[in-house]
Amino acid sequence: MRRDELAERLRRAYRVEMDPDTAARQLSVVSARLGTSQASRPGGGRFRRRVAALATALAVTLPGGLALAAEGTVPGDVLYPVKLATERVRSIFDAAVTAEHRLEEVETMLERGVPLDRVVGHLDVARDAVADMAEREELQDRLERLAKRIRDRMIADRPFGDDEEGPVNGRRDRQVDDREDVAPGDTPPADDVTRPHDRRSDRLGDGEMDRPGDG
């Protein structure tokens, strides 16, 4: 077999294209990540750092009232930087506090009816935090339950054309069928929305490029 024949055979077997639906879904998840990432807000970095520094000082010097008030906040709330600041202090004593907070925030966002693209983005942040606590299986379980809730909500929110389904019952049947199509067997339901971020302790950095995953 010649080299060009081998190349052609490889291309024929493995050359594929991203289908438009998958591309749209992936880009929406990436956009959500860009939107929820704190560093993504243009021009806000210095202000946020100042707020965080102030909050850290307050958290250390003031009684716990402020910290308590910030406890149930989610990204976008005024007191959220306070929560992050106290979290940094608390995480010295309890490494799981960050992961627990991120999971609680996803739950709160779901309960508040925050748009799902933002929730999905924050779920990914939570995944990262949980991945750092791999030994705490209950956190992983909680994460997976949340992922399933989000997936169910996404399926429930999916619009249907009036000409496709008439009665409400028909729509319900369709939704159940879709769910079965998308998440067969034991596949974690939200894994096609986002996937767990794994530790990459064996990854080596080199040369001029930064190591992927080290952001």
């Binding site: 991203m18 990436v30 990540r33 992927p212 952001g215």
Partner: peptide, 12 residues
């Protein structure tokens, strides 16, 4: 692929 772009979002 998706995970790579999420990592890029973080490391951008």
């Amino acid at each position: 692929v998706q995970q790579a772009f999420l990592e890029l979002a973080r490391a951008a």
